[in-house]
Simulated assay, not measured.
Amino acid sequence: MFTIENYISVSTPKKALFNWSSGKDSALTLYKILQNSDFKIEYLLTSVNQQYQRISMHGVRVELLKAQAKSIGLPLKIMQIPEMPTMEVYENVMTETLTELKTQGITHSVFGDIFLEDLRKYREDKLATLGFEGVFPLWKIPTNHLIQEFISLGFKTIVVCVNERYLDKSFVGRIIDQDFINDLPENVDVCGENGEFHTFTFDGPIFSEPIKFEIGEIVYRKYEKPKNEDSSNTACDTNASDAFDFGFWYCDLIELK
Protein backbone atom coordinates (compact mmCIF):
# COMPACT_ATOMS: atom_id res chain seq x y z
CA MET A 1 0.00 0.00 0.00
CA PHE A 2 1.37 3.41 -0.97
CA THR A 3 1.54 5.89 1.90
CA ILE A 4 3.02 9.36 2.32
CA GLU A 5 5.64 7.80 4.65
CA ASN A 6 6.79 5.50 1.85
CA TYR A 7 6.98 8.41 -0.56
CA ILE A 8 9.12 10.44 1.82
CA SER A 9 11.55 7.60 2.51
CA VAL A 10 12.04 6.93 -1.20
CA SER A 11 12.40 10.53 -2.29
CA THR A 12 14.77 11.76 0.42
CA PRO A 13 18.33 11.73 -0.98
CA LYS A 14 21.09 10.02 0.97
CA LYS A 15 23.74 12.32 2.40
CA ALA A 16 27.15 11.59 0.94
CA LEU A 17 30.69 12.88 0.97
CA PHE A 18 32.72 13.00 -2.23
CA ASN A 19 36.35 11.90 -2.32
CA TRP A 20 37.82 14.71 -4.43
CA SER A 21 41.33 14.36 -5.86
CA SER A 22 41.14 17.52 -8.05
CA GLY A 23 41.65 15.44 -11.21
CA LYS A 24 39.65 14.33 -14.21
CA ASP A 25 38.15 11.11 -12.81
CA SER A 26 36.88 13.01 -9.77
CA ALA A 27 35.43 15.72 -11.98
CA LEU A 28 33.55 13.30 -14.22
CA THR A 29 32.33 11.29 -11.22
CA LEU A 30 31.06 14.42 -9.50
CA TYR A 31 29.32 15.50 -12.70
CA LYS A 32 27.46 12.19 -12.78
CA ILE A 33 26.60 11.94 -9.08
CA LEU A 34 25.24 15.50 -9.00
CA GLN A 35 22.66 14.37 -11.56
CA ASN A 36 21.63 11.44 -9.38
CA SER A 37 18.70 12.43 -7.18
CA ASP A 38 19.39 9.50 -4.85
CA PHE A 39 22.33 11.36 -3.32
CA LYS A 40 23.11 14.79 -1.90
CA ILE A 41 26.79 15.68 -1.74
CA GLU A 42 27.54 17.42 1.56
CA TYR A 43 31.33 17.79 1.30
CA LEU A 44 34.30 17.40 -0.98
CA LEU A 45 36.90 15.40 0.98
CA THR A 46 40.58 15.71 0.01
CA SER A 47 43.78 14.45 1.61
CA VAL A 48 46.62 16.95 1.71
CA ASN A 49 50.32 16.48 2.41
CA GLN A 50 50.67 18.15 5.79
CA GLN A 51 54.31 19.16 5.24
CA TYR A 52 53.95 20.76 1.80
CA GLN A 53 50.25 21.72 1.83
CA ARG A 54 49.67 20.09 -1.52
CA ILE A 55 47.14 17.47 -2.60
CA SER A 56 48.44 13.99 -1.89
CA MET A 57 49.99 12.32 -4.96
CA HIS A 58 48.95 15.16 -7.27
CA GLY A 59 51.21 17.83 -5.80
CA VAL A 60 48.67 20.61 -6.41
CA ARG A 61 48.70 23.60 -4.08
CA VAL A 62 45.91 23.87 -1.51
CA GLU A 63 45.01 27.32 -2.86
CA LEU A 64 43.97 25.78 -6.17
CA LEU A 65 42.02 23.05 -4.40
CA LYS A 66 40.07 25.71 -2.51
CA ALA A 67 39.48 27.60 -5.76
CA GLN A 68 37.98 24.44 -7.26
CA ALA A 69 35.64 23.93 -4.30
CA LYS A 70 34.52 27.56 -4.47
CA SER A 71 33.76 27.32 -8.18
CA ILE A 72 31.95 24.00 -7.72
CA GLY A 73 29.95 25.44 -4.82
CA LEU A 74 30.46 22.65 -2.28
CA PRO A 75 32.07 22.77 1.18
CA LEU A 76 35.62 21.40 1.31
CA LYS A 77 36.88 19.09 4.05
CA ILE A 78 40.67 18.67 4.14
CA MET A 79 42.43 15.74 5.78
CA GLN A 80 45.98 16.59 6.80
CA ILE A 81 48.19 13.54 6.10
CA PRO A 82 51.91 13.22 6.98
CA GLU A 83 54.50 12.60 4.27
CA MET A 84 54.60 8.85 3.37
CA PRO A 85 52.18 7.83 6.18
CA THR A 86 51.87 4.25 7.35
CA MET A 87 48.55 2.54 6.74
CA GLU A 88 47.83 2.81 10.47
CA VAL A 89 48.33 6.58 10.47
CA TYR A 90 46.29 7.05 7.29
CA GLU A 91 43.45 4.90 8.53
CA ASN A 92 43.38 6.65 11.90
CA VAL A 93 42.98 10.05 10.22
CA MET A 94 40.31 8.68 7.89
CA THR A 95 38.42 7.02 10.76
CA GLU A 96 38.44 10.22 12.80
CA THR A 97 37.20 12.24 9.83
CA LEU A 98 34.41 9.84 8.85
CA THR A 99 33.29 9.41 12.45
CA GLU A 100 32.84 13.18 12.68
CA LEU A 101 30.94 13.32 9.37
CA LYS A 102 28.69 10.46 10.40
CA THR A 103 27.29 12.60 13.21
CA GLN A 104 25.93 14.89 10.46
CA GLY A 105 23.88 12.07 8.99
CA ILE A 106 26.28 11.27 6.14
CA THR A 107 26.03 7.60 5.20
CA HIS A 108 27.71 7.26 1.79
CA SER A 109 31.16 7.92 0.35
CA VAL A 110 31.62 8.49 -3.41
CA PHE A 111 34.76 7.49 -5.31
CA GLY A 112 36.02 7.87 -8.88
CA ASP A 113 37.58 4.40 -9.04
CA ILE A 114 37.15 2.59 -12.35
CA PHE A 115 38.53 -0.95 -12.32
CA LEU A 116 40.97 -1.63 -9.46
CA GLU A 117 39.20 -4.47 -7.65
CA ASP A 118 41.55 -4.62 -4.63
CA LEU A 119 41.24 -0.89 -4.01
CA ARG A 120 37.47 -0.99 -4.15
CA LYS A 121 37.32 -3.93 -1.74
CA TYR A 122 39.68 -2.15 0.65
CA ARG A 123 37.52 0.96 0.59
CA GLU A 124 34.27 -0.93 1.07
CA ASP A 125 35.63 -3.04 3.93
CA LYS A 126 36.93 -0.01 5.82
CA LEU A 127 33.75 1.98 5.21
CA ALA A 128 31.58 -0.88 6.43
CA THR A 129 33.31 -0.90 9.82
CA LEU A 130 32.18 2.72 10.24
CA GLY A 131 28.66 2.25 8.93
CA PHE A 132 29.26 3.85 5.52
CA GLU A 133 28.56 2.57 2.02
CA GLY A 134 30.76 3.19 -1.00
CA VAL A 135 29.41 4.55 -4.29
CA PHE A 136 31.35 4.09 -7.56
CA PRO A 137 29.61 5.84 -10.50
CA LEU A 138 32.39 5.09 -13.03
CA TRP A 139 32.88 1.45 -12.08
CA LYS A 140 33.75 -0.87 -15.00
CA ILE A 141 33.04 1.74 -17.67
CA PRO A 142 35.81 1.35 -20.31
CA THR A 143 38.39 4.07 -19.75
CA ASN A 144 38.61 4.94 -23.44
CA HIS A 145 34.89 5.75 -23.30
CA LEU A 146 35.27 7.78 -20.13
CA ILE A 147 38.07 9.99 -21.46
CA GLN A 148 36.12 10.75 -24.63
CA GLU A 149 33.02 11.60 -22.59
CA PHE A 150 35.13 13.82 -20.34
CA ILE A 151 36.46 15.79 -23.30
CA SER A 152 33.12 15.98 -25.11
CA LEU A 153 31.44 17.44 -22.00
CA GLY A 154 33.84 20.37 -22.15
CA PHE A 155 36.07 19.48 -19.22
CA LYS A 156 39.64 20.73 -19.33
CA THR A 157 42.44 19.17 -17.32
CA ILE A 158 46.22 19.42 -17.15
CA VAL A 159 48.68 16.66 -16.27
CA VAL A 160 50.42 17.64 -13.02
CA CYS A 161 52.30 14.43 -12.21
CA VAL A 162 53.67 11.49 -14.18
CA ASN A 163 55.27 8.30 -12.94
CA GLU A 164 58.54 7.80 -14.82
CA ARG A 165 57.93 4.05 -14.77
CA TYR A 166 55.38 4.72 -17.51
CA LEU A 167 55.89 8.22 -18.95
CA ASP A 168 58.71 10.70 -19.46
CA LYS A 169 58.95 14.38 -18.58
CA SER A 170 57.38 15.49 -21.88
CA PHE A 171 53.91 14.40 -20.72
CA VAL A 172 53.74 16.51 -17.57
CA GLY A 173 52.21 19.96 -18.00
CA ARG A 174 50.15 18.92 -21.03
CA ILE A 175 46.43 19.46 -21.47
CA ILE A 176 44.58 16.20 -22.07
CA ASP A 177 43.19 16.25 -25.58
CA GLN A 178 43.12 13.85 -28.50
CA ASP A 179 46.79 14.49 -29.28
CA PHE A 180 47.73 13.59 -25.71
CA ILE A 181 45.71 10.38 -25.89
CA ASN A 182 47.28 9.44 -29.22
CA ASP A 183 50.77 9.96 -27.80
CA LEU A 184 50.29 7.63 -24.83
CA PRO A 185 52.25 4.35 -24.97
CA GLU A 186 50.13 1.22 -25.39
CA ASN A 187 50.85 0.04 -21.84
CA VAL A 188 49.44 3.25 -20.29
CA ASP A 189 45.76 3.47 -19.39
CA VAL A 190 44.14 6.54 -20.99
CA CYS A 191 42.72 7.55 -17.61
CA GLY A 192 45.92 6.77 -15.71
CA GLU A 193 43.98 4.35 -13.53
CA ASN A 194 47.14 2.44 -12.63
CA GLY A 195 48.83 5.59 -11.29
CA GLU A 196 50.62 6.45 -14.54
CA PHE A 197 49.67 10.13 -14.29
CA HIS A 198 47.55 12.56 -12.28
CA THR A 199 45.69 15.68 -13.35
CA PHE A 200 44.17 18.96 -12.23
CA THR A 201 40.78 19.84 -13.74
CA PHE A 202 40.26 23.56 -14.20
CA ASP A 203 37.13 23.96 -16.32
CA GLY A 204 33.94 22.14 -17.21
CA PRO A 205 30.22 21.85 -16.50
CA ILE A 206 30.62 21.45 -12.71
CA PHE A 207 32.44 24.79 -12.37
CA SER A 208 30.77 28.20 -12.17
CA GLU A 209 33.96 29.69 -13.59
CA PRO A 210 37.34 28.35 -14.80
CA ILE A 211 40.20 28.05 -12.31
CA LYS A 212 42.90 30.51 -13.32
CA PHE A 213 46.54 29.49 -13.01
CA GLU A 214 49.91 29.66 -14.65
CA ILE A 215 52.40 26.85 -15.10
CA GLY A 216 55.35 27.07 -12.75
CA GLU A 217 58.43 24.92 -12.34
CA ILE A 218 58.63 21.31 -13.48
CA VAL A 219 60.51 19.25 -10.89
CA TYR A 220 61.63 15.66 -10.46
CA ARG A 221 61.14 13.88 -7.17
CA LYS A 222 62.10 10.41 -6.04
CA TYR A 223 60.82 8.97 -2.79
CA GLU A 224 63.08 7.09 -0.41
CA LYS A 225 62.05 3.70 0.88
CA PRO A 226 60.99 3.97 4.55
CA LYS A 227 63.75 2.86 6.91
CA ASN A 228 63.11 -0.06 9.26
CA GLU A 229 59.62 -0.35 7.89
CA ASP A 230 57.84 -2.64 5.48
CA SER A 231 57.10 -0.49 2.43
CA SER A 232 53.92 -2.49 1.80
CA ASN A 233 52.58 -0.94 5.01
CA THR A 234 52.63 2.59 3.64
CA ALA A 235 49.49 4.33 2.42
CA CYS A 236 51.06 4.82 -1.01
CA ASP A 237 51.12 2.27 -3.80
CA THR A 238 54.48 0.72 -2.92
CA ASN A 239 53.75 -2.99 -3.07
CA ALA A 240 55.92 -3.59 -6.15
CA SER A 241 59.47 -4.63 -5.28
CA ASP A 242 60.89 -1.88 -7.47
CA ALA A 243 58.38 0.82 -6.43
CA PHE A 244 61.11 3.11 -5.11
CA ASP A 245 63.32 2.71 -8.19
CA PHE A 246 61.19 5.21 -10.08
CA GLY A 247 60.55 8.90 -9.53
CA PHE A 248 57.87 11.36 -10.50
CA TRP A 249 57.78 14.52 -12.62
CA TYR A 250 55.62 17.26 -11.12
CA CYS A 251 54.32 20.39 -12.80
CA ASP A 252 53.70 23.20 -10.32
CA LEU A 253 50.59 25.29 -10.86
CA ILE A 254 50.33 28.80 -9.46
CA GLU A 255 46.95 30.37 -8.83
CA LEU A 256 46.12 33.60 -10.64
CA LYS A 257 43.76 35.92 -8.84
Rank of each mutant, 00 (worst) to 15 (best):
M87H: 11
L153T: 14
T238G: 04
T234M: 01
F244C: 06
F200S: 03
Y122R: 09
C251P: 11
N182M: 07
K70P: 02
E88K: 15
F213N: 14
D168W: 02
E209T: 11
V10G: 09
C161P: 03
L34V: 02
L130H: 02
E217S: 03
V188Y: 02
L167V: 12
F202E: 15
Y122T: 08
G154T: 07
K140L: 11
F132A: 14
G105E: 14
N187S: 15
Y52T: 14
R61Y: 05
L28T: 05
V48M: 12
L44P: 15
I206L: 07
L130A: 05
G216L: 10
N194H: 14
Q35Y: 04
D183W: 12
S71A: 10
V89L: 07
Y52I: 03
R123A: 02
K212L: 15
V89H: 08
K15F: 04
I254G: 01
Y223C: 06
N19W: 14
S22F: 03
L130F: 03
L30S: 10
L64Y: 06
V48Y: 13
H58P: 13
Q148G: 01
L17V: 14
K70D: 12
D125W: 04
T143E: 15
P205I: 13
T12Q: 10
Y250P: 13
E117A: 01
G192A: 04
T86R: 06
N92I: 00
S22D: 01
Y43H: 04
P185I: 07
H145Y: 07
T199R: 10
K24E: 06
T95L: 05
W249K: 00
A16Y: 00
E42D: 12
D237N: 09
Q51P: 02
M79S: 09
L17G: 13
G23S: 14
S9K: 12
K40V: 13
L44V: 14
F132S: 14
L64N: 02
